[in-house]
Design a protein around this nucleic acid. Structure first.
Lengths: 126, 126
DNA sequence: AAGATATAACGAAAAAATTAGTTATGCAAC
DNA sequence: GTTGCATAACTAATTTTTTCGTTATATCTT
């Protein structure tokens, strides 16, 4: 999956939040100084060309919605990152951030609980 | 920390691997079709302006080396990502990827071991 | 020293991304 | 129906990024 450019990503973040919206709606969710209406309109059409969004037409006005979910894009992006920076090992990445204290004890305990569950689930499959 | 552009990132990846190198060395590590010598030379000088690398001069030739480590860039990049896609919670991110089966049982067991250790370490600090 | 070679610096062309003005069209208000 | 307004499409300007030709300079070879 292609990576989003900076401007494209900002628009996608808004659409992911809104679920769907007209250019006007997207624009509203930008901080001041807001870009021009046409700027958003252009970007959203580029996103459509790239297959990240589609639209439903009401007469002449278009309601845009994501084709690629935030989860799917996350997955793709983080997979690339893990591949490029942690030789494709999620384990290495998580260990690194755990050791660097970017994950709190509380978070680690939560993660371990979830993992224990997942491990159990995976093993019982066999 | 500023994000690297695509071309810049490729050069940084090589420099991180080499630890240090002349433009010629960096060029060698590119796949065919290799870019022009001057392309790399320009990018590495841009990286220098941005503070990602510096160089040691041997007469007229420059040996470049990273000022920003791969680890530091990873941290910055992933922090941004976690902030934008998982409301700044590493726990949420890791849980998501654990549930999506992007982390193998073996990896999860390793991660849990490391986390148990970290948790113990953190708690004994008090 | 003269010529060849390698390199960085410079400059600029080309490509990609961003921003927004202009235009055309449809709908709404009157 | 005419006017005004909102919108998408189109176009273009600007900025950023990427690429590389040209030039100047230092070093090496002879």
């Amino acid at each position: 999956m292609r990576e989003l450019t900076r401007a494209e990503e900002q628009v996608m973040q808004v659409l992911w939040k809104l679920k769907k919206g007209f250019v006007k709606d997207i624009l509203e969710h930008f901080d001041d100084p807001k870009p021009a209406y046409n700027t958003i309109s252009t970007i959203v059409r580029i996103l459509q060309d790239k297959g990240f969004v589609d639209h439903k037409a009401y007469g002449r006005t278009h309601e845009y919605y994501p084709l690629v979910s935030k989860d799917d894009y996350s997955k793709s992006h983080l997979s690339n990152f893990v591949n490029d920076y942690f030789s494709n090992s999620f384990g290495k990445m998580v260990s690194f951030f755990a050791k660097e204290n970017h994950i709190s004890v509380k978070e680690m305990e939560e993660i371990m609980k979830i993992m224990q569950n997942e491990v159990k689930k995976q093993k019982s499959k066999k």
